[in-house]
């Protein structure tokens, strides 16, 4: 038995179907994989209908994940990685649109809606309070209606 055979047995022993062995993570470096995932869920796969880079199996998405992995390995910051991608594909790759002149309305809009809505409601209620004189549906009438309806329901 020569040294190659021993090596082969050792390799088989280490890599073959080992009972109850703990499975290895798919990624060599789980920490950077977690960072990739963190980034990729906010990035858009360009060729897909509407999927994140993390979810897509499209070849381009795989390539881009590979690029991002390499950039993470090079210790580039999230900001640098995002700049790398937007320089090539534009803001379209970002699922979180950056705040710019053109996206101000997008980011401010929802809160503007609440403020406008709340103001309108308060003004309306005030104006209403000064205008309403008659009370078409009083508690008393309600009770009467309920009573009448109950009686109606009991009739065969």
């Amino acid at each position: 038995m020569n040294i190659q055979w021993i090596a082969l047995i050792v390799v088989l022993f280490l890599s073959g179907p080992v009972w109850a062995g703990e499975a290895r993570p798919l990624a060599d470096d789980p920490a950077s994989e977690a960072r990739l995932k963190h980034l990729a869920v906010e990035l858009r796969c360009l060729v897909c209908q509407n999927q994140t880079l993390a979810d897509s199996n499209a070849p381009l998405a795989e390539d881009l994940r590979r690029e991002v992995r390499e950039m993470i390995a090079k210790n580039m910051s999230d900001q640098e990685i995002i700049e790398f991608l937007t320089a090539r594909y534009g803001d379209f790759v970002l699922y979180r649109p950056p705040l710019k002149a053109t996206t101000t309305l997008l980011w401010v809009g929802p809160f503007l809606l609440v403020i406008v809505g709340a103001t309108a409601l308060i003004i309306t209620l005030r104006r209403r309070a000064s205008k309403v004189v008659d009370v078409p549906v009083t508690e008393d009438e309600h009770r009467r209606v309920e009573q009448l309806l109950t009686e109606g329901g009991k009739r065969p």
Binding site: R44, Y95, P97, T102
Partner: peptide, 13 residues
């Protein structure tokens, strides 16, 4: 220009 509005935006808002 073209942008994408996705989960991070909606979650934030």
């Amino acid at each position: 220009g073209k942008i994408s509005v996705g989960p991070p935006y909606f979650d934030t808002v």
